[in-house]
Design a protein around this nucleic acid. Structure first.
Lengths: 284, 284
DNA sequence: CTAATAGTGTCTGTTAGACACTATCTA
DNA sequence: TAGATAGTGTCTAACAGACACTATTAG
């Protein structure tokens, strides 16, 4: 490397003088949204915080990134530390939340990841170090009104007696969507920090891809009946859909395994996702 | 706040003891992808770096986030400092790049934003403090092969004699898309760090929304002819499209202003985007 | 008249929503 | 035979791709 900068320094000389301790730096964290489908319901994993800040609130599993640790490694490590879960079938970055005042400790910039797993992968979820308790919360988002201007929805997380409900307002502003949310009064618990925003984005992302990609199959076992797929689909999009049409369309991305499973008093054919379709439209 | 943690501390006590200097923190930066359409070509703003690292490479405008500055504020400030541009009509977060080894100075986590502006907003782009030179690069992405497995494309940035070209390989891996890229040998310059990944994501995002949303209109003047829209659309998606079909479909989201503009030896009607459609499908 | 641009019309195959229907098995 | 589940068929309106066509005006 021959190039020198305005001070006549080579890259090596420049780096030798470089000192990042001159400025105060934000802390970086990662959060994980882990979803699955249990008994036909869309579920989200939350942990109850046992320390400040947001003590006793429910939070997405996550934590600080080590200085020389890749972000993906960090989020997997934190998930394991807090919940003992190690396998996901789907994994992608969702959004980075970095408002200057979002954490009372210091400036915290959080990158949130979205992941999914079939329910049979998560038999033994335990609370780990930083979590008081973990819970698989049923996740429902119902759209109350929708027009050209925006949408008003209610997003509800429930687990046993715990009920966390937010009103979510999406409004079109100068070429982007502004989302505002507030805790609904019939809640008896709440989410930490701005985690509701991440959950809401995850639901919207999942919904927008549920019909046109194979994303749903990350939530389901390897071999599934058409009814299981449809139930999961309906849990995701939050409304019923026509059985005939759904079957007609979904079969295009399925392979019949030849196996059957007893369902009610009848046998249902078992299908698996045709990996031919895994690339399809999956790109943003 | 009465709640105390395991050490019996209130939130105030906890915060008083909290010391973020015990650990070394990553540095956080923001980068901006700013696009426009000039003479029917999709353009991207790049600045030539005048200091280490990546000296003399072309880079996205951006820089360090101040400790107590919102990320959006930071990216607007950096854009103004480096290019004197202050107005965008479209603005959203794109992705956060945080691999542990992506910058030789220290650990750097970069959040990249995508923005657009009509060409008439950017008459006087100047190189600012940290940039040697700025340039509006014509951006083209051509897909060479595409199948269920993935896509091979070439992404080319050119500005005058400068030609920066990358081969981009998208491959379906375990339910997500892995993108790899390498500098094409007929390039005579290159992009700094991993900026090609961000540019590639931006193109894909723009393409995926170009037909179904009004995103294109962020690149165009207020009043446009159908031909201008079609040309911009073709520049974005990288291939020609049928004029009759395009007009039939795009008119659904337009309002005829009644004005006309001379085009060739004929007058063309001027339309504007119907803001009724601004919310439509814009959510991820 | 030609070239360059704007702008329209029509055919056809595919897709998506609504809805009525049959099949199998247990109790 | 009732009830619960699986699974199919059909009509129709909307949409999308291919392509042939007309209109206006400077030079």
């Amino acid at each position: 490397m021959e190039d020198r900068n305005a001070k006549g320094e080579t890259l090596e000389e420049f780096l030798a003088k470089y000192d990042d301790s001159l400025y105060r730096h934000p802390s970086n964290t990662v959060d994980m949204i882990l979803m699955t489908v249990i008994e036909g319901k869309l579920k989200l994993l939350l942990v109850k915080r046992k320390d400040h800040p947001f003590i006793h609130d429910w939070a997405l599993p996550g934590g600080f990134i080590n200085f020389d640790e890749d972000m993906e490694t960090a989020v997997m490590r934190e998930l394991q530390e807090e919940t003992n879960i190690t396998d996901q079938t789907y994994f992608r970055q969702l959004y980075t939340f970095g408002n200057a005042d979002r954490d009372p400790r210091t400036r915290v910039i959080t990158t949130c990841y979205l992941s999914m797993t079939p329910a049979d992968n998560i038999r033994n979820t335990l609370a780990g170090d930083d979590a008081e308790e973990t819970g698989w919360f049923t996740l429902e988002k119902t759209t109350l009104t929708a027009d050209a201007d925006g949408r008003d929805s209610v997003l509800t997380l429930s687990c046993g007696d715990i009920r966390i409900s937010y009103s979510v307002f999406d409004r079109a502003k100068n070429n982007y969507i502004e989302t505002r949310s507030e805790l609904h009064p019939d809640s008896n618990a709440k989410l930490a920090a701005d985690h509701i925003k991440a959950v809401n984005m995850a639901v919207d992302l999942l919904r927008s891809r549920a019909a046109s990609t194979g994303i749903l199959f990350n939530l389901l076992p390897e071999e599934v009946t058409l009814r299981q797929i449809q139930t999961a689909y309906e849990a995701v999009i939050g409304r019923p859909t026509d059985t005939g049409n759904f079957r007609r369309d979904i079969k295009k991305m399925l392979i019949n395994t030849g196996h059957t499973a007893k369902a009610g008093n009848k046998y249902a054919a078992l299908y698996r996702f045709n990996p031919m379709y895994s690339y399809l439209k999956e790109n943003l």
